[in-house]
Design a protein around this nucleic acid. Structure first.
Length: 346
DNA sequence: AATTCGTGGAT
DNA sequence: TATCCAAGAAT
C-alpha cells in the first residue's frame, strides 16, 4: 500500500460525504476557525453551533474580542462548559493584538504557545485557515488511526500517544491540507463512530486492520476508570420583595471559575449565621427544595437548594454578592445546573 | 503521569 | 440507570 493511499481515499470520500456546511467555514477566516476550534474541544458540533452564532454576533473580529470585558466573554460561554477555554481565548486575543500585531502566526510552534491552543488545535487552525500541511490528533483521528492500524491499547498512554502522532504525521498529505483535516474529523464523527461504526460505507475499509479482524469495538482501548466520588453542597436561593435573586461570583480558580452562581455551603447550619452577617437578616426561615443531581467529568454533585424570601438590605461591602433581577441575570454567565435551578423558582 | 477542568448525547 | 466520552489543554 502506497503512503498516500489513506489520504487519497479519504479525500475522495470527503468530496461526496463530508460536512461542507459548517458555519465556521463560510465565510472562512482564521479568527472564526480559531474560535470554533476552541469551542469544539471536547464538545460536539451540534452543541457548538448556536454558541458560535451568538459569539460571532457579539465578537465579530479579533479586535472586538480583545477589547471586550472578560465577564461578557464568560457570559457567552455560559452553559458550554470548560470555562478556562473562554478565559484563555480572551487572553490569547489580547496577546495576538498586543504582541502579534493582530496577525495569527502561521507555524504550529508559535501558535501553540498561545493560551488554550495545544498542538492539535494549532494544527487544525493552520491546516483549515491557511491550507498548510499540519497534522492533528483529536479524538476522531485517534479512533480512526487506532482502528486502521489495529491499535487496541489506550491512547492516554504516552507510548501510544506518541505512536499516534507519528501515524498522523505519516498519513497527512502535502496537498489539500484543509480538506484532508476536515475529512479525518468528518470520518470519525459520522462514519468511524465510537459505537456501531458504518464500516460498509467507509473509504478505508479495504486496508483497515480492525475491520479485517472485526475488532472495531476494541480499538482504541478504554481509559481505566475509577468510581466517581460524590459531593454535597447546600445552595441558597435568596429572593427579596422585588423578586431579585442573590448571586455570588465564583473565585477565578476551581469549578465554574469566574461564573455567577448561588452562595454555597457545606453545612446547612452555616446558612442562617451567614445571612445575618452579610445581609443583616434575623429570624430567617429556610425552605428545602428538591435536590439536584449533576455529574462532572470527575465527580457527582448533589445540590441541596434552600429557598428564603427576605427584605432587601444593603449587602455587606467587600463581598462578591449581588441582587439581580431577571434582566440582570440574563447578562451574567451562569453554570448550566444553576440556570436550570433558577428557572424552577421563577 | 495523573488531575482538573462541563455539559449533553448515546447506549 | 450508569457509563462513556466528544474537534483537549493546563498544571
Amino acid at each position: 500500500m502506497r503512503r498516500d493511499w489513506f489520504s487519497k481515499a479519504l479525500l475522495k470520500w470527503y468530496a461526496q460525504h463530508g460536512r461542507h456546511d459548517l458555519p465556521w467555514k463560510k465565510p472562512l477566516s482564521v479568527y472564526r476557525v480559531w474560535v470554533s476550534e476552541i469551542m469544539l474541544q471536547q464538545t460536539q458540533v451540534s452543541t457548538v453551533i448556536p454558541y458560535f452564532a451568538r459569539f460571532m454576533a457579539s465578537f465579530p473580529s479579533l479586535e472586538s474580542l480583545a477589547n471586550a470585558p472578560l465577564d461578557s466573554v464568560l457570559q457567552h460561554w455560559a452553559g458550554l462548559g470548560y470555562y478556562a477555554r473562554a478565559r484563555n481565548l480572551h487572553k490569547a486575543a489580547k496577546c495576538l493584538v498586543n504582541d502579534f500585531a493582530g496577525i495569527f502566526p502561521k507555524d504550529v510552534t508559535t501558535l501553540s504557545s498561545l493560551p488554550g491552543i495545544g498542538l492539535s488545535t494549532a494544527g487544525a487552525i493552520i491546516a483549515q485557515a491557511y491550507n498548510l500541511r499540519a497534522p492533528i490528533l483529536d479524538g476522531n483521528v485517534k479512533r480512526v488511526l487506532c482502528r486502521f492500524h489495529g491499535i487496541k491499547s489506550w491512547p492516554g498512554e504516552k507510548k501510544v500517544h506518541d505512536k499516534l502522532w507519528e501515524l498522523a504525521e505519516y498519513h497527512t498529505p502535502k496537498q489539500q491540507a484543509a480538506d484532508y483535516t476536515q475529512a479525518t474529523m468528518d470520518l470519525g464523527a459520522t462514519c468511524c463512530t465510537r459505537t456501531k461504526p458504518s464500516c460498509e460505507l467507509c473509504p478505508l475499509q479495504k486496508h483497515c486492520a480492525a475491520f479485517s479482524q472485526q475488532s472495531q469495538a476494541q480499538c482504541p482501548g478504554k481509559k481505566p476508570r475509577k468510581k466517581l466520588p460524590t459531593k454535597q453542597l447546600y445552595m441558597l436561593c435568596a429572593q427579596n420583595q422585588h423578586g431579585e435573586l442573590l448571586l455570588q461570583q465564583r473565585p477565578l480558580k476551581g469549578i465554574w471559575a469566574g461564573l455567577w452562581s448561588l452562595p454555597e455551603f457545606t453545612d446547612e447550619s452555616a446558612i442562617v449565621p451567614w445571612l445575618n452577617e452579610f445581609l443583616g437578616t434575623s429570624g430567617a426561615k429556610l425552605t428545602a427544595l428538591s435536590p439536584i443531581l449533576h455529574t462532572f467529568t470527575h465527580y457527582h454533585l448533589t445540590i441541596l437548594p434552600r429557598l428564603i424570601t427576605i427584605r432587601k438590605k444593603a449587602i455587606k461591602s467587600q463581598s462578591n454578592l449581588s441582587w439581580l433581577n431577571n434582566d440582570a441575570l440574563a447578562q451574567r454567565g451562569l453554570p448550566a445546573p444553576i440556570q436550570k435551578l433558577i428557572a424552577t423558582i421563577r
